[in-house]
Amino acid sequence: MRVNDIVSGTILLLLGAAVAAHALGFPAAHGQTIGPGVFPGSIGLGLVLAGALLMRSGWRQTPRAPAVEWDEGLRQPRFAANGALVIGTVIFYALAVERVGFFPSAFVMLAVLFLAFGVSRRWIAPLAAAVTFGLHFAFYSLLSVPLPWGWLERFAW
């Protein structure tokens, strides 16, 4: 998704203003001349300034770019859905892994994305299973990262 400089400038200006306003509300630190709000406050003001400059350059640009331009990928439903699936599977994994465990969550994540990206159907399950096991071995057994067991707690090794 592409926006022109006027839109991105406006977003930055609003973000900067919100940050600066919020930072002004930080209480002064007892015994310190510079309070906790000064640094983020100046960054906020910097963003306001940068946003204003971007808006100005967008305004002067001729011919002016359209406010919002969608990438080709986002306009085609199939690819837009793939993008959503990437985000969705990560969210799914984050929500599921502690309860369900690493093996099912990782397998589902891989299988869904393989399917979406067009990997040949009969390869999906074996490939996803092999990668899941390989990763588990590397991270859990070799690097001792405590990947959650979830449903498979009883089979934990």
């Binding site: 990560v90 994994y93 994540m109 891989l110 994305l113 393989f114």
Partner: peptide, 13 residues
């Protein structure tokens, strides 16, 4: 198409 999902899983872990 095979590599990208695997990389994503590596990133997540």
């Amino acid at each position: 198409r095979v590599l990208m999902p695997i990389i994503l899983l590596f990133c997540v872990v």
